[in-house]
Write a protein that binds this DNA or RNA. Sequence first.
DNA 1: CACTTTAGCGAGCAGTGTTCGCAATGTAAA
DNA 2: TTTACATTGCGAACACTGCTCGCTAAAGTG
Lengths: 234, 234
Amino acid sequence: MPSPTRRERLRAETLDEIKAVALRQLREVGAAQLSLRTVATDLGMSPAGLYRYFDNRDALLTTLITDSFDRLGDALEQARDADPDADVADRLLAALAAYRRWAVEHPQEFGLIYGTPVPGYAAPPGGPTSTATRRVGGALAPLFVEAWQEGRLRLPDDVAPDPALARYAAELHPGLPTAAAAAILGAWTRLHGLVILEAFGHLRWLRNETSDLAEQQLRLLLAEIGLSPASAPR
Amino acid sequence: MPSPTRRERLRAETLDEIKAVALRQLREVGAAQLSLRTVATDLGMSPAGLYRYFDNRDALLTTLITDSFDRLGDALEQARDADPDADVADRLLAALAAYRRWAVEHPQEFGLIYGTPVPGYAAPPGGPTSTATRRVGGALAPLFVEAWQEGRLRLPDDVAPDPALARYAAELHPGLPTAAAAAILGAWTRLHGLVILEAFGHLRWLRNETSDLAEQQLRLLLAEIGLSPASAPR
DNA sequence: CACTTTAGCGAGCAGTGTTCGCAATGTAAA
DNA sequence: TTTACATTGCGAACACTGCTCGCTAAAGTG
């Protein structure tokens, strides 16, 4: 690690500052309304100066995306590992609840990550967003695998052989049956559907403090794959 | 029905024309990039002229939203009622597959409906978007209720009493148990999660023609609530 | 026919992302 | 220390956006 020159240090600092201000503004007004000019004036900078740090607005948003993925991943891992000796089902419930919690508490960032994609854009396969995505999956998947290793993951019958699913199973763990991958994918999609509907306000017609309902749904989700957590999380 | 005056007819025509052009542009470039000026020039109109028909850009987008909801609702109802004598499970699978199909084939409109919400905005309770939302739910719910009436809906155990869920159950059908509402909600969230992940490109790492995988997931989804469709749909 | 309502337009305003050339400063070599 | 270069930031400007205003001309109404 070469000692960073003074210029490099300053550059890193202002870069962090830009990201901090942009994140604050993202949380206040959302990604669509995030304005480079406002970010610049908040920093006491000219709009043009920002372009020394980001090629364009999309580049700034991209780093906000990867940073958000990282924070979500942190939250998941922390919840997952908070009580390493607990039963897998309980750790899973904690992780799923953390996913929901993070989304509800950071709706703008969650929207930035999982919301409407920009039409032409496809994340470059090896790019930073792709690896960041995998991290979120990687935080949850090991718990499912662990449950399977303990013989507690209820597998669905009649899972048609699917090459993509089989490859996914092999990636998760050597020897993991395709049916387990199907179950994990099912749990993940159900979790995501519940959370995104709530975070985006589409469950508001159930006028209720949806927390209870969400947690109940998470428990049912786990029960369906044979895992019944005992304790109340958090 | 009073015979529409000539002016009213012309107005309705250009209004339809505006919506058609805007929809075309939405599909091409997405909601974020939809420009009033481009819509206007496409119509051979001045930008200012559009304001005789829509208060502002958001108003235009709002009608695009409600129209999209309507088209999605149409697609669901059509798929649901295509073969009225078929088994409930098969009709359900057809409806769920139609939901997915519409989303994948109309990603921009699906994104407009279920994508990132604009921060400040909350749909007015009695407003057009609210009623349009209910229509989509109303297209699917009766099938679940029908399955329950036939005693074929597998209900989850240990559903904690929840007032919001109980009210929802009562709205769906008098006498419907809360556990059934929980199961329906679970199926709906899982369906939505699967579809939104696919439509927004978050399942692309399963590089595969995801159609097979999606249909398999839909079948598993139904199997989990005790409904196993026999035939292959479409 | 006179009178009112409506449709549409051109000009213009405030705001946006972005580019360009210029000045000032930090860094390193002669 | 002096010279050369690289980096940082800025002001001005461009093209674009949504939107407002006042005007004209046409359509409808008594």
